[in-house]
Design a protein around this nucleic acid. Structure first.
Lengths: 233, 233
DNA sequence: CTTGATTACTGAACATGTTCAAATTGAATG
DNA sequence: CATTCAATTTGAACATGTTCAGTAATCAAG
């Protein structure tokens, strides 16, 4: 029976012995390898357990569900990003290039796992699901990701209107999620179309931001911000 | 074992006797009732079969999967829309109102089935899935829906730039899909936030269209259209 | 070292989507 | 009516995510 996500939302296995940690790692490694090679749906919990050298139910001691195993992948890339992203961003002061660095890095990290991302989206498109990128349980990771965009903005030469300053990072995060979604399904060679889309929209975006600073754009900004506020409650 | 959607994409049961048609209807009715009352995940194929008074496997004679049963819902609303949408649109010549009529009608039709729509999205977010709203198998229904937007545009007083004429209906269709997505997850009373969002973005949209007709906007339009073409192959 | 408890793990059992070989039905044919 | 054959229906069997009662390993305390 598939787990209902009305279940308690508590992260499991707080503290662990090194031994247990090693078992846990073995299970994650086996899972990610199999997901990458065969796909999420095609990989069986029995496969994973077998490859990790444990019994069928062992994975459930560490993870609440098969889906939670893909979160382990997400967590790993986030960890990695923490070290490679800052230098990538700071290679330029140009806003477009800085944003491009963030997005391109994500794509590189995900490149080998396109199919796995589809599984993540299938799970995460529902904000009520605990593992949704929009949900509670992923809040810490999400905020870290949003802060990355804040850093990209703050260190750039482009001046951001004061009233947009707070909301813009989150908007950019949502924009980058939409791009990732597009990228996932982009069947063109080396995701050429996504590159075009990213380039085009980023240029448009930066230009809009420059225009938005003009004094006579105040009312329009205000309307947009008002709409945003009304929406997010 | 969940069905893999690399299976043949052929619609099932072309011709049927009245008797079989009646059984099929009974299964759909039972399924939709249960989906509405208990939710998609919480409804069992055994439940459905039982409620329809047939054996467990019977549904699979008419539908390839549990998921395909929700398409039956989608097909029914599309059928209904065919009769109620045209008069609703033609109540006004104002583009904003005409578009609003299309969207509001959809919301009314879906109102009782918010949870079911989440299931549809979980399925359909993957364009490789045969039942995806972006996929092959739903092309006919999708085109019909897009044509609705074409009708709303063509009958309005707002003048549409020639070069946008072909692409705009599809863009509007995508916009309305995004709205429906937002609506599905909108927990506010009577989906107040979605209403605000729809009102705000529609006004913005129509205004942009009016501005877009200005001669000096030609290059910008061209850039946008170029981007669209590059993306869609 | 022994004992007790906590942690880590096992594997059978269960629920549910799906398949399939066999049984049933019903209409067309002789 | 009897026969035949395809359409329809059955229900047991299967695959897989998940649970759980029990077993083994590890550790703390005496």
């Amino acid at each position: 029976m598939p787990a209902k996500y009305t279940d308690t939302v508590v992260s499991r296995r707080e503290i662990t012995t090194p031994k247990a940690e090693e078992t846990r790692e073995r299970i994650v490694d086996a899972a990610l390898d199999l997901f990458r090679d065969k796909g999420f749906d095609e990989t069986t919990m029995r496969d994973i357990a077998g490859a990790a050298g444990v019994a069928t139910g062992a994975a459930y001691y560490y993870f609440r569900s098969k889906e939670e195993l893909v979160m382990a992948f997400y967590a790993r890339t986030a960890e990695e990003a923490r070290t490679i992203l800052p230098p990538a961003i700071d290679r330029s002061k140009d806003l477009r290039k800085r944003l491009r660095a963030v997005i391109d890095t994500k794509f590189e990290q995900f490149a080998e796992h396109r199919r796995l991302l589809i599984a993540i989206v299938r799970i995460g498109i529902d904000p009520l699901h605990p593992l949704s990128p929009f949900g509670q349980e992923t809040e810490v990771m999400r905020n870290e990701s949003i802060d990355t965009f804040r850093a990209a903005l703050d260190g750039s030469t482009t001046k951001i209107p004061k009233d947009l300053h707070d909301d813009l990072p989150r908007l950019l995060w949502m924009y980058h999620m939409a791009l990732i979604l597009f990228w996932m399904f982009d069947q063109s060679k080396a995701q050429r179309r996504t590159r075009i889309l990213a380039g085009g929209t980023l240029e448009l975006l930066v230009r809009l931001l420059q225009i938005a600073s003009l004094p006579l754009m105040g009312p329009l900004r205000k309307k947009l911000i008002g709409l945003l506020k009304a929406i997010e409650e």
